[in-house]
Structures are given as C-alpha cells and as structure tokens.
C-alpha cells in the first residue's frame, strides 16, 4: 500500500514536471477554464470600456489591434486581432489575461472580472467569425449610441471659469440634430502627446458636454496652449476635432540650464566668483614670486655697490 502511494506520488511528480515543461512552450489552459463563458453581456458599452482599458494596459505591448504593430518581444505578444487569438475560446483568453505568463502580467490584481471581460469584448469586436459562447457573449448594438453622420462641434468658451461647453450635432435622415451619447475628449497639446484635461465626457440628450480647465497648467511664455477637443470614438464618427489656442495657462519661461555662468557651463561662462577667486589667488602668488625675483636683482646690486 505504502509502495503504491510512493509510486503514484512519483508518477504525479513526473506528469506534473512534464506538463510544466510543456507550458513553457505552449500556453496550456486547464480544460475547465477553457469552458468558462463571459460573465457580462458584450455590448457597445463594454466594448468602449474595454477599448479604454486596452489603450492603458495592453496597447504598449500588443499595439493597435489589427495593425500587427506589437512590440518585438520574445515570446511575441502578437496582435489580438489575429487568428492566434480568434481561434481561442473566451475562457482561454480570460484565463491568460487573468493569470499572465512571463512578460504578460497577471491582471487579476489590477482589473476586476468585469473589466477583464470588457477587454475581451473589445478584442472580440475585431474577430469577424466570432460566435458568442454560453449565455452572455453577444454584442448588442446599443440604441443610446448616436448614429448620425457629418458630426460637427460647436464650442462655447467661458473665459472667467475656464470652462468649455460643446454642442455636438449630426445629420440623421438629412436633418441636423443634437447628438446625445457621444463621448468627447478634452486635451491640451504638449510636447510629447495630448494631455487629457478630464475623463471623456458623454454628451447629454441635448448633445452638450462640459469640461472645466485647471488654471495652473503651464503654457508658453505668454500662457498660451493649444486645446484639442475631439470625439473619442473615431471609428464611429471619423476624426472630428476642434483646435484652438487659448491663453488660459500660466506663463512659463524656460530657463536653459546651460545658459548663464555655471559650474557646468563651458569655458566662456565661468561663474564670476570662480573667475575672481582664481585670478586673485594666481595673481597674488605670481606677484609674490615676482617680488622675490626683484629681491634677487636687488641682491646683485647690493653686491656691486660694495
């Protein structure tokens, strides 16, 4: 009996180690996990939520879905729009996203279950052949999303409160109407990209969205900066944006750390204190030496006199 336990334990260890070394090559997902189905119903809303999460947490390695511009890492992160992903079950994707492996982080501690499913719903929107599994996995087009065309932005600025109100309008059946449920982003142009002023704002039923700008953002030397207001869902509405230069920022005077007289400057910009110290010390010493040389001449004269 004891021997049997020992044997089976040994067998278990061998099997485990083989399966472990196998996972090092192919990412095996336990079969019970494979079968898991989405806990949420995929919808435009979950897709949008997933898109935002993807942009923050996934894009840096996986790149833009469908463009195969993922980072050249080993193992490769791959493009979630590719067959490699579309061939997997919802359960497999969820497991991998949850547990992570190697360079792929485990997101179970960073994203809630629903958020992870939202990311999958976004990824699934790129898989043409995707057939919803189980109960919930179906993309429902929500009626709340505005479906008009020829979207226009009308901008109102409140100079006193540094507040911008925009009205979004679009064409529905040839008529211009206010566009509700459109997500609008407010940004300020910085050197290396766009700075979000606030979370994206969804227009209300009158097509209006508001954002308040902080008063202490650095602008150029006159306090100017460029604002950019644009629709987040450019895949729905095309690239609609509004750009303007405002003088709402704080004047920021850039001081070049190399200009001026500093210890780290070049030989023409010596700090004054250093120049004075150096010259005065060296002069003092040289004058003293010169005095001694004069004394030596005097010594010679004193000898001749006698």
């Amino acid at each position: 009996m004891k021997e049997n336990i020992f044997k089976s334990a040994l067998l278990a260890i061998i099997v485990l180690s083989i399966s472990f070394s196998a996972t090092a090559q192919v990412w095996e997902v336990p079969s019970d996990k494979k079968e898991i189905t989405p806990a949420i119903t995929f919808s435009m809303k979950t897709k949008t939520q997933g898109k935002d999460i993807y942009a923050k947490s996934c894009k840096s390695c996986h790149g833009d879905i469908g463009k195969a511009n993922f980072l050249p890492l080993n193992p490769a992160p791959n493009d979630p729009g590719s067959e490699r992903f579309s061939n997997q079950t919802d359960g497999e994707l969820f497991f991998k996203l949850t547990e992570g492996r190697g360079g792929m982080p485990a997101f179970k501690s960073q994203l809630a279950d629903n958020e992870r499913w939202a990311v999958i719903s976004y990824i699934r929107s790129f898989h043409a052949d995707y057939k919803p599994t189980g109960g919930g996995g179906e993309i429902v087009e929500e009626s709340s999303a505005f479906t008009g065309t020829n979207i226009k932005l009308f901008v109102n600025k409140d100079q006193v409160n540094l507040e911008i109100t925009i009205e979004v309008q679009g064409n529905v059946d040839g008529k211009t109407v206010s566009a509700p449920g459109v997500r609008v982003g407010f940004f300020i142009e910085r050197n290396f990209g766009l700075l979000s002023v606030c979370e994206p704002v969804t227009t209300n039923k009158n097509g209006i969205a508001k954002a308040k700008f902080p008063g202490d953002l650095p602008g150029d030397s006159l306090g100017n900066y460029n604002i950019i207001i644009k629709l987040i869902d450019d895949d729905l509405y095309g690239n609609v944006e509004y750009k303007e230069t405002l003088s709402w920022g704080k004047a920021f005077i850039y001081e070049n750390p190399i200009e001026g007289n500093h210890l780290w400057g070049n030989n023409t910009s010596v700090p004054l204190w250093l120049l004075i110290s150096y010259i005065s010390v060296v002069l003092f010493v040289l004058i003293t030496i010169g005095w001694v040389v004069l004394q030596m001449l005097k010594l010679k004269k004193a000898g001749i006199k006698k």
């Binding site: 030496i289 005095w291 004394q295 030596m296 010594l299 010679k300 004193a302 000898g303 006698k306």
Partner: peptide
C-alpha cells in the same frame, strides 16, 4: 651667485626672500 659678497644687506634680502617663499 648673483654677486654674493656676504654684506649684511645681502643677508637681510636673502633671509627675507626665503622666509616669504
């Protein structure tokens, strides 16, 4: 030898110069 004669004045100069240096 700078015309050294050993005069008191020369001694004075040489001692002073050495001390300053």
């Amino acid at each position: 030898s700078l015309g050294w004669m050993g005069t008191p004045e020369q001694y004075k100069i040489i001692h002073k110069s050495i001390r300053v240096l």
